[in-house]
Amino acid sequence: MRINGATTVLELEPRVSLLDALRDELGLTGTKKGCDQGACGACTVLVDGERINSCLALAVQYSGREITTVEGVDHPLQAAFVANDGLQCGYCTPGQICSAIGMLAEHAAGAPSAVTEHLCEPDPELTDAEIRERMSGNLCRCGAYNGIVDSVREVAVAEQLR
């Protein structure tokens, strides 16, 4: 597996999830466990640039893939989260950030969402409603949603200007 740019060799039982491998075997505890059921998004990591829930991923299935965890992220979203107070306790934050990075890439690739009005539009505008729907797989019990949406919008706009 390549994790945050470095090749890592792990011998694991097949039942070990990618999440547990990261946290327990590799000490990469930035990726969080909130439910272990695919119901909260705290464990979101990027696999070859796509966001997934690492709790429902058996590590053995991801042999040879490029995994990015929050520890490997260096992205304007991080500063935006601090500036917009897109976090409180911080437990869902790494998952929100990884998810938002994956989401921006999906949007840039023209992927629609459940709230996209015209499905065939190749380049749907990233409205607040779009951001909220696309980020709905990441729960935040502290309720920092407004700040998260502000952060994502800010970074998306800056990326478009660049």
């Binding site: 929050v70 992220v73 989260f81």
Partner: peptide, 9 residues
């Protein structure tokens, strides 16, 4: 603690 919380530290 904004930075440690957004970097996984």
């Amino acid at each position: 603690d904004g930075v440690v919380k957004t970097t996984g530290a």
